[in-house]
Design a protein around this nucleic acid. Structure first.
Ligand SMILES: [Mn+2]
Ligand SMILES: [Mn+2]
Ligand SMILES: [Zn+2]
Ligand SMILES: [Zn+2]
Lengths: 160, 160
DNA sequence: TTCCTTATTGATAATCATTTTCAATAATAT
DNA sequence: ATATTATTGAAAATGATTATCAATAAGGAA
């Protein structure tokens, strides 16, 4: 094991991206990526800061925000808004449909469920739509979000 | 014409909803709905406040926020986040597919384009997904958002 | 209408996630 | 090792949204 993630893993991928973009590979950036990689949840900047802080206490919250913005800009991290006033971040794990998923958001308690039902069909439609929109509006589409809002099982039960 | 919107129009619909929910029909609420109805854009709370202010200058920004929250909760208004740090609001114009649309967001300049390509097919897929998710997770789904992010024609050109 | 109850309002202050500033530090090329 | 400059972290600033609370007005009853 040479890097923080071993020979394979997410390391290699972004390593090149950083170098190509003229960005330096720093300890804060490595640790933030590590934390994102080890977590499957949808972390807020502060969630990430707290985990990062346990590994390397001198890293500041500002750096977490800056790094996340950088990673989002590079397309390595997704940024979501689930309506609770803080952004959520999730490592982008490649373009394979195995990691592609969307979200179900409970507007009452904030619970988030990842789902991947009908993803194949969805990707088909998304791609068709994407091509049409790129042709029609000259837009260069980079990514998309699809979210369902409603009441989770528990909250639905509470309200009868 | 008896009401602010005539006999038909959006008036009737929410009028019942308000009464049913025990909410009072006040001048600020009427004017905020009027402004939303007259605008086709995606207005921020402050945009709405400024328009409301021209019609009835004593209405405060706080009331605009509160009313919007109420309308969103009632399902009469959609609330969006396009990533520029402020929420955007749009009047919900019925369930007919003629008004159903989604958004293309330029991550560089913030331009928003409404689109409705392949909406029929999308609704089919959405409904199928919705049913499956409701069955599988016990979620009661109320609505959904689908957004594409990328570079608009102009921004793409600027970056060669 | 007039009176009562209480939902609603608006000015103000408070909150709090995210940005900005800027001097100190550390990553890379030579 | 040295020079260059991207990056960092502490602190202060920003800015959208929310909480407070006394004053007001909508809707029902009389
Ligand atoms: Mn997820
Ligand atoms: Mn729209
Ligand atoms: Zn819930
Ligand atoms: Zn643009």
């Amino acid at each position: 094991m040479s890097g923080r993630w071993g020979e394979r893993g997410p390391g290699k991928r972004w390593h090149r991206e950083f170098r190509g973009g003229g960005y330096r590979i720093t300890i804060p950036r490595q640790i933030i990526l590590q934390v994102l990689d080890e977590s499957k949840k949808h972390l807020s900047a502060e969630d990430i800061f707290l985990k990062v802080h346990q590994i390397y206490p001198t890293i500041g919250l500002t750096t977490v925000y800056r790094t996340l913005e950088l990673l989002v800009g590079m397309g390595l991290v997704f940024k979501f808004d689930f309506g609770d006033g803080r952004a959520r971040y999730e490592l982008c794990r490649g373009d394979d449909s195995s990691s592609h998923h969307h979200h179900l958001v409970c507007t009452n308690c904030g619970r988030i469920i990842d789902y991947a039902e009908f993803i194949e069909e969805e990707l088909e439609l998304i791609n068709k739509t994407k091509q049409e929109l790129e042709k029609k509006y000259g837009f260069e589409i980079r990514n998309h979000t699809l979210q369902f809002y409603g009441l989770c099982k528990r909250c639905k039960a509470i309200k009868e």
